[in-house]
Write a protein that binds this DNA or RNA. Structure first.
Lengths: 257, 257
DNA sequence: TTCCAGCCTTGATCTATGTCAGGGACGATG
DNA sequence: CATCGTCCCTGACATAGATCAAGGCTGGAA
């Protein structure tokens, strides 16, 4: 699948590629290729050695981990997210599996090339550090949410975050299947169902993938959102400006759970 | 407190500083200072803006997060660990609090200087990326452990990891108070106590801070350690060689919980 | 020495969460 | 249209984990 000019322009706007010199960018793109995958394709299995940096141009990718026949979703990535950057930088094997959830267009950049150009373009290298730092901080937030909050509270905060992202509409659309959301939030689908039921007392009405937050104040009092855990950066502020560089480094869809 | 030559030599061996040029290193050190803190000193509170990169030269530092009057320990750092690097790179505020557990000697490097020299020394910048990538992957491991395993399994794996670290001796010494360990492992002290009691059936004998693993095979069958979650890199292999750069990037004491 | 505070353990109890089983709604397919 | 599969919800139950209360141990301070 040929890489269109428009695609190039889009990825060029990614903070960590924006910082790259013309030459660096050209070299990164030269060995890159763009591929379309159907839903459900496994791009990478945990333990695999990693040869490419992946960039989601379209679709959704799920990052998951397994142990002892159990699986958990660690992140859900939408367009203009990169993934597996840490493994590429260290030339190490993947700690997570990556699977497409929808049909997805993925740009793949040679890891070897990436490491090489990093040694020659300090500004680019710095931007990669920022990208990684943002990923790290996203995970710290998730970890805090996971260890400090109960399931209902995690869900309540998820809903509030989605609400902000979706323009503060009273009714939001869940961007993923409920069982996927459950795994992301660290609970079983059954439990998520019950958690939604509990939230009825707080003005939350569920209708399939549509969730109406009737009394935001009440829900917020339960959720107790925290700037050091939750990341409410709205859609149209993502990926722009230093203040928000950290907020949604490269995973617009990654949820702080 | 003056910075001794011996201290400089030690930090120079840190992978991410080893990659720095003489000039870069000199500039980093010029504005740095070394300070001794008593046990229990708060170096940084979550939400604070971060002006320095911290390096533990001696002692122990605890990284913790709070929400709704609850607290959890996210990492425990021993000598030659850096911390708060991600916030420094992004010039963002801290997501975790940092507190000394023992009397500790801490080297503080100006964050502003660090960012500046990164723009001029690509090799150094790359090494910082590797450091951050290692931190990120450490957290991914923790997250998987937290979401996929139960408390007893987390403890069992912790013990096995410690055993490897402490030279495969049958009896290991817990490096921290049990209530601290409990928080790190994501459980209450009471529960940790009971978890230890359960492990008696698997040949684990506890005597204060001394833990004897009588039948490693039996314990291992319970723990099901996994190379993609647990990090068994022994003490004398830390911080050396590319293969292990990732393993214990900068937190020799950080536990994958 | 005596006293006290902090740490750890233990038992009883409660709550949150997981597991299992059943059934309804919906959409794809024949 | 009928059927099947998937997703989701719900109830009953089991288990893990948290909480509360009490008591033992130990090490430092008076």
């Amino acid at each position: 699948m040929p890489i269109k000019e428009a695609d190039l322009a889009r990825v060029r706007e990614l903070p960590f590629l924006k910082a790259a010199s013309e030459d660096t960018f050209r070299r990164l793109i030269q060995g890159a290729f763009l591929q379309r995958f159907p839903a459900g394709t496994t791009l990478l299995t945990e333990g695999d050695s990693v040869d490419f940096l992946y960039i989601v141009l379209d679709g959704t990718v799920e990052l998951s981990g397994t142990w002892n026949d159990k699986e958990t979703i660690l992140a859900l990535l939408g367009p203009l997210s990169t993934f597996i950057l840490a493994a590429v930088v260290l030339d190490a094997s993947a700690l997570m599996s990556a699977t497409t959830r929808d049909r997805s267009d993925i740009l793949m950049i040679s890891g070897e090339t990436l490491r090489r150009v990093m040694h020659e373009d300090a500004a680019f290298s710095f931007a990669v550090s920022q990208e990684l730092a943002g990923c790290y901080r996203g995970l710290v937030r998730s970890m805090k949410s996971q260890k400090l909050r109960g399931g209902i509270e995690r869900l309540a905060n998820y809903l509030i975050t989605q609400r902000v992202r979706q323009g503060n509409a009273e009714t939001i659309t869940l961007p993923h299947e409920k069982r996927v959301l459950a795994s992301l939030l660290g609970m079983t689908p059954e439990n998520l169902s019950r958690a939604f039921a509990s939230l009825a007392d707080y003005g939350v009405v569920v209708n399939g993938p549509l969730v109406t937050i009737g009394r935001l104040v009440v829900l917020t009092r339960l959720a107790k959102p925290d700037a050091l855990i939750d990341n409410h950066a709205p859609d149209d502020m993502r990926g722009r400006g230093k203040a928000l560089l950290e907020a949604w480094p490269n995973q617009p869809e990654r949820m702080t759970v």
